[in-house]
Design a binder for these strands. Structure first.
Length: 231
DNA sequence: GCGACAG
DNA sequence: ATCTTGTCGC
């Protein structure tokens, strides 16, 4: 693990803290679901069309788990499968949203950042809880933000994506700034706390995991809206 | 040493 | 993350 930590230091220095999203239409959202005993996983990606507000493509990949879950080292576990599934997208991708942190990380290299160094588009981390630093409680309304501070710097924001609902923690991965990252996540939220691309990717991998997990063809009728696609 | 700790 | 159904509230 010391080796991984050393690598994070080297890679973090290569991050680009700025970029643009002008004209960004296709946003990829990705997530990972784990099988029994943490032996295998399902990585999935969904391409969200900002213009039409719907999914235009989705892919999944099943693989073996090759790294343990250790807080602060999530990227070594999820980057490989996520990069593979992302490479399967046929259409162009303008930005990537991922379940986890970007630079709001102990050593400045969260999953979104590590992933971003392998891609050529802006990446943004959107986590459900804080990993490092401290944050100011945002106001109660949708769109309200409270900055996340780490080592005296603003590395992200606690964003209220719905009135009176717990905020999500947004931080740039690579090739984008804090403000634009927050703006993108908010624009992707459609009535739920989690931005649509990531929420759909989550439903996608959960569904994939279940069908690969069941033996017979039992009548499956789930609450998963239309198989996790186009809400 | 003690507490924290993405998914 | 995962084990898991219905239920209370905005």
């Amino acid at each position: 693990m010391e080796e991984a930590r050393r690598i994070q230091g080297i890679l973090a220095a290569q991050l680009i803290p700025e970029g643009t999203l002008s004209g960004a239409r296709y946003i990829a959202g990705c997530d990972v679901a784990y099988g029994a005993e943490d032996h295998w996983l399902v990585a999935g990606v969904v391409l969200w069309d900002m213009e039409k507000g719907r999914i235009v493509e989705s892919r999944t990949v099943t693989a073996e788990v090759n790294f343990p879950y250790v807080p602060g080292y999530l990227s070594f576990r999820e980057c490989p499968p996520l990069l593979e599934v992302l490479s399967k997208l046929g259409r162009e991708v303008h930005a990537v949203l991922v379940d986890g942190h970007g630079i709001a990380h102990p050593r400045g290299l969260g999953l979104a950042s590590h992933l971003g160094l392998h891609l050529d588009v802006p990446t943004v981390g959107c986590a459900k809880s804080l990993l490092a630093g401290e944050y100011e409680e945002p106001g109660p309304k949708r769109g309200n933000v409270g900055w996340i501070f780490l080592n005296g710097k603003v590395v992200g924001a606690a964003l209220r994506t719905r009135d009176l609902v717990k905020p999500v923690f947004v931080s740039p991965g690579n090739n984008l700034g804090v403000k634009d990252s927050v703006e993108l996540v908010l624009k992707c939220c459609r009535g739920y706390r989690i931005p649509e691309p990531i929420r759909c990717a989550h439903l996608l991998v959960q569904g994939k995991k279940r069908e690969g997990n069941r033996r017979d063809c039992e009548p499956q009728m789930g609450p998963v809206e239309k198989n996790g696609l186009n809400p």
